[in-house]
Design a protein around this nucleic acid. Structure first.
Lengths: 240, 240
DNA sequence: GTTTCAACCAATTTCAAAATGGTTGCAATC
DNA sequence: GATTGCAACCATTTTGAAATTGGTTGAAAC
């Protein structure tokens, strides 16, 4: 019953009713799944073996497995096997990800992550962390080259992520930064010029530091969001 | 050469001019690096080979390589080799991260990520993706076990992330989910009971789907934020 | 006492063979 | 004639042994 509800969902092809033909295998499969003692990783026997175990042909078994896979109750992969449970996410390949991304998408991701980090930082930052943050902000202003500015800017944002005291979000931001570096590769900044004294980021950073120092979570998130929005606008070419 | 080096293995102190003994090898190394045609990955020959090429002892070569490595001009790894350029960023260790985290921090991370994903989904989702999302929502309601519900719930949230059409944020959410599974392990749900018909998530999901279907970015982000806030409240024990 | 050399260690790569899900072509069966 | 059964084949992955490679040690040599 729950079988039929799940199957109709993804049925992209023309409605041929294989229900009756497959239902027998499905019942056997459910019986096996509840009876068999599976290994910790949830792997079940190879198709050729399982087919013999259940006394069905391999093609028939595969139809049943396909149904269960569409329901999301198991997942399969060539060379690996068949496993019960949801399909595990493919682990992160930075360079591959960078190739499939562009700087604008990186900015969208930063806008997704960093305001919340600023919010948490306003709640959880220690006094020492706020001090360090202010110092990094000062160092940004004092930078004489773009390269130096970017180094301090990166540490500024990283310091906020640390002050949020959430190891997961911190790790996600570091991953994002790795992608950012990989994406940005190949489009170097001018190394001789320096950030102008009225660079918009300076004021943005001030507001972020103030909000965190004054323990204003909403204000910190908002200041960060506006800052990144400004950066994105510059990136797009709006208000250069 | 007759100098008393008194060198400790991990002498991390401020960069002092390299010993006279090492400078010879360093010059040879610099010469080799500028002359040799290295493969694309920047890998240079194995130490044993390179030592013979330069006509120096392996121990001596290693001293020079150590200097260059400290300068950040190359990086080495056992079994891999020696490569010119900066050391590639280490990708994160899920299980280690899970050990340093708790379910509440996972929720904070979700609140940081998923509202923005919902916002982008309201902008970028295709009609087919919205349809699939609605179907997954229906499947959640129709679930007869917690296990089945959670499977559909996970796919629901994943579908939103896909509909956002931002590979970076999608990858970050998948990473987060991997951590979530690792953290949640060991506290199984009752497998026989089923989600109550008035489960708060049902209405929450409805609002999210509506906002995305009606292309309301702010509304989608808000609905998602409220949903996750509800889940967090349940997690903490407030309003069980 | 330092240097040199060879051996050893641990992490990784490489290579071939086996395993495994996915597919195809052809014959058998109804 | 369409479905089913069967076997072979394909592409990916795992496995395991051997070779590779950076890192380390200890004794011999100078």
């Amino acid at each position: 019953m729950s079988l039929t509800t799940g199957r109709r969902m993804m049925d992209q092809t023309v409605a041929s009713p294989p229900d009756a033909a497959v239902s027998g295998v499905l019942t056997q499969l459910y019986g096996f799944l509840s009876a068999a003692r599976l290994p910790d990783d949830g792997r079940l026997p190879p198709e050729r073996e399982l087919a013999e175990l259940l006394g069905v042909k391999r093609a028939e078994l595969r139809k049943g497995l396909a149904v269960l896979e569409r329901e999301g109750q198991l997942w399969r992969h060539v060379g690996k096997g068949t496993f019960v449970g949801p399909r595990p996410p493919q682990l992160l390949d930075i360079s591959d990800l960078a190739q499939r991304s562009n700087p604008l998408q990186v900015m969208k991701a930063r806008i997704g992550l960093e305001p919340e980090l600023a919010r948490l930082a306003a709640i959880n930052a220690t006094a020492a962390e706020v001090t360090t943050l202010a110092e990094l902000n000062t160092a940004c202003r004092a930078s004489t080259t773009w390269r130096e500015y970017e180094a301090y800017d990166a540490r500024f944002h990283h310091q906020i992520a640390e002050a949020a005291h959430n190891p997961i979000l911190l790790a996600l931001l570091e991953t994002l930064n790795a992608v950012r570096r990989a994406v940005t590769w190949g489009r170097p900044r001018p190394s001789h010029s320096s950030p102008p004294a009225d660079h918009h980021s300076f004021d943005d950073h001030d507001r972020i530091v103030d909000a965190i120092a004054h323990r204003e979570p909403a204000g910190a998130a908002d200041a960060m969001r506006r800052h990144l929005q400004n950066v994105e606008d510059r990136l797009i070419g709006r208000s250069p």
